[in-house]
Structures are given as C-alpha cells and as structure tokens.
Amino acid sequence: MVRSITDECREFLTSIGAADGLLHVWVPHATAGVAVLETGAGSDTDLLESLEHLLPRDQRWVHRHGSPGHGRDHVLPALIAPHATVPVLAGTMALGTWQSVCLVDTNGDNHQRSVRLSFLRG
C-alpha cells in the first residue's frame, strides 16, 4: 500500500504555525517506510510492483512469523527508510510539483499505522 500523507503533513505545519525549517516524518514500525514520490499517475503502483520484484512474497525469508512471505516486509525499511525530512519555506513544504509524502507499507498483517511528525525551526 502506498498512501499519501501530504495533507496530514500540511495540517500539522499549519497547526504549529510553521515558518522556515525542516519537517521530519517518522513511521515507528518495522515493516513500513516513508517515500517522497508522485502519486496518481501510476508511480505508486510501479513502486509496489518493483518491491514485489525485488522482495518476492515467498518462503525464502528466514523471518517467518505472520502471513507467508512476511519476512520481506521486514526488509522493506532497509530500502525505503522509515523516515523523511522535507524542507519547509514560509510554512509550506518545498515539494516539487508532483511530489507527495507517502506511507509505504507492504504488510497486510497490520492495518494500524501511526506517523510521527516533528518540526525543526530554521
């Protein structure tokens, strides 16, 4: 699953009255990551298909609790870090035109996720 959390990040920045600084996005889970990418034009699907190719959901994984192939979910954060830092200028994330901040999670065993946001004024 790839889900944009860009709106939640914007709401957070507004709620704290952010100006210039750095937004830090952290996902405290062993099987999820944060990516900055284009969504809605197929890039999110391409990412998931690429991960399936790189990390197939099969029995090769030593880590074997959960659903079949779940070990690959625990390798995901080594490829898509569980954090991202986004520059903020005048209270607005300095994202490119098509960029979104996204939660990436291939673990179907856990449907509850939390994201922690913090801001370093600069």
Results as ranks from 00 to 15, higher is better:
residue 28 P to M: 03
residue 28 P to W: 03
residue 29 H to V: 08
residue 29 H to T: 06
residue 29 H to F: 07
residue 30 A to I: 05
residue 32 A to K: 03
residue 32 A to C: 09
residue 34 V to P: 13
residue 35 A to I: 02
residue 35 A to H: 03
residue 35 A to W: 01
residue 36 V to M: 09
residue 37 L to T: 01
residue 37 L to N: 01
residue 38 E to Q: 14
residue 39 T to W: 00
residue 39 T to V: 15
residue 40 G to W: 00
residue 41 A to N: 05
residue 41 A to V: 08
residue 42 G to R: 12
residue 42 G to L: 07
residue 43 S to Q: 08
residue 43 S to V: 04
residue 44 D to L: 06
residue 45 T to V: 14
residue 45 T to G: 08
residue 45 T to W: 08
residue 45 T to P: 03
residue 46 D to P: 09
residue 46 D to F: 12
residue 46 D to Q: 11
residue 46 D to E: 12
residue 46 D to W: 13
residue 47 L to S: 00
residue 48 L to R: 05
residue 48 L to V: 10
residue 48 L to M: 15
residue 49 E to K: 13
residue 49 E to V: 08
residue 49 E to D: 11
residue 49 E to R: 14
residue 49 E to L: 14
residue 50 S to V: 09
residue 51 L to V: 11
residue 52 E to V: 02
residue 54 L to P: 03
residue 55 L to E: 05
residue 56 P to F: 03
residue 57 R to C: 09
residue 57 R to Q: 13
residue 58 D to K: 08
residue 58 D to A: 06
residue 58 D to V: 11
residue 58 D to H: 10
residue 59 Q to L: 12
residue 59 Q to E: 15
residue 59 Q to H: 14
residue 59 Q to V: 11
residue 60 R to K: 11
residue 60 R to G: 06
residue 61 W to D: 01
residue 61 W to K: 08
residue 61 W to I: 04
residue 61 W to M: 02
residue 61 W to N: 04
residue 64 R to H: 13
residue 64 R to M: 11
residue 65 H to T: 09
residue 65 H to C: 10
residue 66 G to I: 04
residue 66 G to L: 03
residue 66 G to T: 07
residue 66 G to N: 05
residue 68 P to S: 06
residue 68 P to W: 07
residue 68 P to L: 05
residue 69 G to N: 07
residue 69 G to L: 00
residue 70 H to N: 10
residue 73 D to M: 04
residue 74 H to W: 06
residue 75 V to T: 02
residue 76 L to G: 08
residue 76 L to K: 11
residue 76 L to H: 12
residue 77 P to K: 12
residue 77 P to N: 09
residue 78 A to D: 03
residue 78 A to P: 10
residue 78 A to C: 14
residue 82 P to W: 00
residue 82 P to V: 07
residue 83 H to F: 14
residue 85 T to W: 02
residue 85 T to P: 05
residue 85 T to A: 14
residue 85 T to G: 08
residue 86 V to W: 03
residue 86 V to H: 01
residue 86 V to E: 00
residue 87 P to V: 12
residue 87 P to M: 06
residue 87 P to L: 05
residue 88 V to D: 07
residue 89 L to E: 05
residue 89 L to S: 01
residue 89 L to C: 09
residue 91 G to E: 04
residue 92 T to C: 04
residue 92 T to V: 11
residue 93 M to L: 03
residue 93 M to W: 01
residue 93 M to D: 04
residue 95 L to Y: 02
residue 96 G to Y: 04
residue 96 G to N: 04
residue 96 G to I: 03
